[in-house]
Write a protein that binds this DNA or RNA. Structure first.
Lengths: 195, 195
DNA sequence: TCACTATGCAACAGATTGTTCTATAAGTTA
DNA sequence: TAACTTATAGAACAATCTGTTGCATAGTGA
């Protein structure tokens, strides 16, 4: 009952090909991803690519899986709700502006609109992130900092959504000052109870 | 000095081809839009399509222009800020759920990420809509209903962004109850002044 | 060492792409 | 109406791309 060893050649081929695919997705969009273009970019032969991924959609899916499963860091409170929210948004903005994620997510959104597999992947990713971020609100509630009719989920979306809106739709810049102002803007909602 | 008459054959060809292109974008994504597929869907011959749009990107661009220039309705206040915001979101959600716009915008976002022309188009569209919606806030301010440090633009994004987030990223449903709850959630901000 | 198998390469038929030419039909002008 | 101008459809084409296969090679595990 030994553990199944995986041929390192397969691992290498997959890694190289998916990295090339991600570069193509990022720079040219999913429409430019073909067995041929991935072969040219990765050095993997076309026949090998067909053997691993008979359809381009299989390749795209694996590439999206790769980028939508980043490590989720443990929640450590910064001490206050405002500080935690600022920290959350800083991380998000940094991921969007300085990592592959920012370049890939628009393509994943487009893929999700026409492909159920991609949609499931994207929604699962977002759901997972929301659940992690919910710890922020629950911790604040325990400290008595958060006491609102707004559900943690809706409140988090209120915080996070403008970042994506500015980035994906408006093309507005996002800097530390804006993040700080944004957190301050919503802070009156921490304790308001609407009726 | 007569007005230049446009050959109706050209107008027809363009209309038919762009309609077909939009259907392909909506159903299959921009990657599936080719002169051939548009020809098959529209009945326009391939050679004619090449004459009108030498590159696929030209065709895509014209299609996106078509869909991103919808008529902007005059602002008529519903009487209160809450009612105006509810009205604004209802219209947006309806456009997203019941018209082409909802199916096309994910593709336009993806195109914008790799193509400056598409990006300009999208950002201009969003900017224009924000400016129209700003009338809501300005009217509320005149009535004394809105008095906040949050700029009208930032406030509107706070209102609008969660709709797009739920639709594009989370895949969450959006119904009238949610819209109403959302407007109520942010209503404490109408008059709050943060410090 | 030996069996196994993933890879690269060449070759291939079939489809797609981009271009050009010609006949025809539709539009415009007088 | 007749004479013109022009847009389109269709065919044909070389070039490229797609998907598949067979085979030699080289890396892997026992």
């Amino acid at each position: 009952m030994t553990i199944q060893e995986i041929d390192p050649r397969i691992t290498q081929t997959r890694a190289k090909a998916l990295e090339a695919a991600l570069m193509l997705i990022r720079d040219c969009g999913i429409g430019q991803v073909t067995h041929q273009s991935v072969s040219a970019k990765s050095g993997i032969s076309r026949s090998t690519l067909y053997r691993h991924w008979p359809e381009v959609s299989d390749l795209l899916n694996d590439a999206f899986v790769l980028v939508s499963k980043p490590p989720i860091s443990e929640f450590v409170s910064q001490g206050s709700l405002k500080a935690d929210l600022y920290h959350l948004l800083s991380g998000l903005v940094s991921a969007i502006q300085n990592t592959e994620w920012g370049k890939i997510v628009p393509q994943l959104i487009a893929a999700a609109a026409v492909n159920k597999g991609s949609a499931d992947l994207l929604h699962e990713f977002v759901q997972e992130r929301l659940e992690v971020a919910e710890q922020i609100i629950l911790a604040a509630r325990r400290r008595g900092e958060y006491n609102s009719d707004i559900t943690p989920e809706n409140f988090l979306i209120l915080i996070i959504a403008p970042v994506y809106y500015r980035f994906l739709l408006a093309g507005f810049p996002i800097d530390d000052d804006w993040i700080e102002g944004h957190v301050n803007s919503v802070s009156p909602l921490f304790k308001n109870r609407s009726r």
